[in-house]
């Protein structure tokens, strides 16, 4: 019973756990189709833009995932790519957003931390990551 619990993360309401209730209430069917992604992956994100207007189309964002936040319904990740003239561009996507049509994973990388902010200070050869092949 709810009122007998002393730890908030184990709050039960009926047979539901609180965190499950939160997620279930706002199920997003779309996110089941998305592949598992990790920090360091090279990905192409297919993003729908101008939804609902005549100019609706799909935009591709290709780059490296430098941050992945698994915070329940607010899961998000940041893709960093090098745009024209060597300018780094970072874009954050909400994983549960209906705007994300598809995520292609090109390669995984051997990384030892969750946030790859050190890539921001690097260019060229030093900005590469060692590839990791998954079985």
């Amino acid at each position: 019973m709810l009122w007998d619990c002393y730890r908030i993360d184990y709050l039960f309401i009926g047979e539901y756990r609180m965190s499950d209730l939160l997620l279930k209430a706002f199920d997003n069917e779309k996110n089941e189709e998305l592949p598992e992604i990790r920090g360091g992956d090279s990905v192409t994100v297919h993003l729908r833009i101008n939804v609902g207007t005549r100019n609706e189309r799909v935009q591709l964002v290709r780059g490296t995932i430098i941050r992945l936040r698994n915070s329940g319904n607010n899961r998000n990740f940041t893709v960093r790519r090098i745009a024209a003239n060597g300018i780094g561009v970072e874009r954050t996507f909400l994983l549960n957003s209906p705007l994300i049509e598809k995520i292609e994973v090109h390669r995984h990388a051997h990384v030892r931390r969750a946030q790859l902010y050190f890539l921001r200070d690097r260019t060229g050869k030093s900005a590469r990551l060692r590839e990791k092949r998954l079985r």
Partner: peptide, 23 residues
Amino acid sequence: GVKLGMSQIFDEQGVATPVTVIQ
């Protein structure tokens, strides 16, 4: 009711609305 916590809901346009879920 009881406050459960915060989350976000998307509409068709992909706009995320911050919400508090209350049982």
